[in-house]
């Protein structure tokens, strides 16, 4: 199948330190890829570069076969490249229903409407109900975000990303900070994603990675050191070496 998302020779350094060092990868619709690597490997930086939040030194990003290297961050989202944030970025005074409704209206180009209150727009709220229900946030739908637990805020981040109906979804540690009892919801939401959506998930929780991913990419010190099946990743000597010392920390922290 042809690639929906392609990155070629992406490079970025901060003050001489190559944080993204010639990274290339390609994903087809329906791919379920996990991007793993020790802390500081450059995973979040990679996401920032491909979404246009950070300027690369060199390299190319393509969505649906078209180069978006010179397209700004907003238009990349409109072309279907959507991310979630490692540390939640939500609006403290708004409710989950408002967050998801805003994302839906934004997707449909209606967020600039100056009249009407989306809490009384049946079409929008029906969709909000489905998304919020899927992530188990229904009881909290009308509570301001600052009053809800961090783990549930993470679930809201995912609901917002899904509301945008992406073609390529980049999830930066969706389960970090989510209590064990709730990771099941994330897994179910991930399992429920549309079949033609390409998903790249950054995650430290290896159980989650093995259940979710058909393919694993390992990043260490800004370089891709492994790109293959989950079955092979733990056997790879370079991966073992990269994780020596840090893997134990990372998995217990996750």
């Amino acid at each position: 199948m042809s690639a929906i998302f392609e990155v070629r020779n992406l490079k970025r350094s901060f003050g001489g330190l190559a944080v993204t060092n010639d990274v290339s990868l390609s994903m087809a619709p329906g791919d379920r890829v996990a991007l793993i690597g020790p802390n500081g490997a450059g995973k979040t930086t990679f996401v920032n570069l491909v979404t246009g939040n950070l300027e690369p030194d060199a390299g190319e990003v393509r969505i649906g076969g078209e180069s978006v290297t010179n397209v700004n961050a907003i238009d990349r989202v409109r072309r279907g490249l959507v991310r979630s944030f490692q540390v939640t970025r939500l609006f403290q005074d708004m409710t989950p229903a408002e967050h998801v409704a805003l994302a839906i209206l934004q997707r449909d180009g209606r967020a600039g409407r100056m009249f009407g209150n989306f809490l009384s727009m049946p079409g929008v709220m029906a969709e909000v109900g489905v998304l919020i229900g899927k992530l188990g946030l229904r009881d909290l739908a009308h509570r301001p975000v600052r009053e809800i637990a961090y783990g549930q805020q993470r679930l809201l981040e995912i609901a917002m990303a899904l509301a945008l109906k992406p073609r390529v979804l980049l999830l930066d540690e969706p389960a970090a900070g989510v209590p064990q009892s709730d990771t099941g919801r994330i897994e179910r939401a991930l399992a429920d994603l549309p079949d033609d959506l390409a998903v790249l998930m950054i995650e430290h929780d290896m159980d989650l990675v093995f259940r979710f991913a058909k393919r694993v990419i390992v990043l260490a010190a800004g370089t891709v050191i492994f790109d293959g099946s989950p079955a092979d990743v733990t056997k790879d000597p370079r991966v073992r070496e990269a994780y020596l010392g840090s893997y134990a920390d990372a998995s217990s922290a996750a």
């Binding site: 979404t51 939040n53 961050a73 907003i74 989202v77 409109r78 959507v82 991310r83 944030f85 970025r89 939500l90 609006f91 403290q92 005074d93 708004m94 408002e98 409704a101 805003l102 994302a103 209206l105 934004q106 997707r107 209606r110 967020a111 600039g112 409407r113 100056m114 009249f115 009407g116 209150n117 989306f118 917002m160 945008l164």
Partner: peptide
């Protein structure tokens, strides 16, 4: 205006414009 979708969008921008961009706004 302030409680319309547009008003909500503006409140979001005040708090975190990068987040609004990540929603395609």
């Amino acid at each position: 205006v302030v409680r319309s979708p547009f008003g909500m969008l503006c409140r979001g921008i005040k708090e975190d414009p990068i987040r609004i961009q990540a929603m395609g706004g």
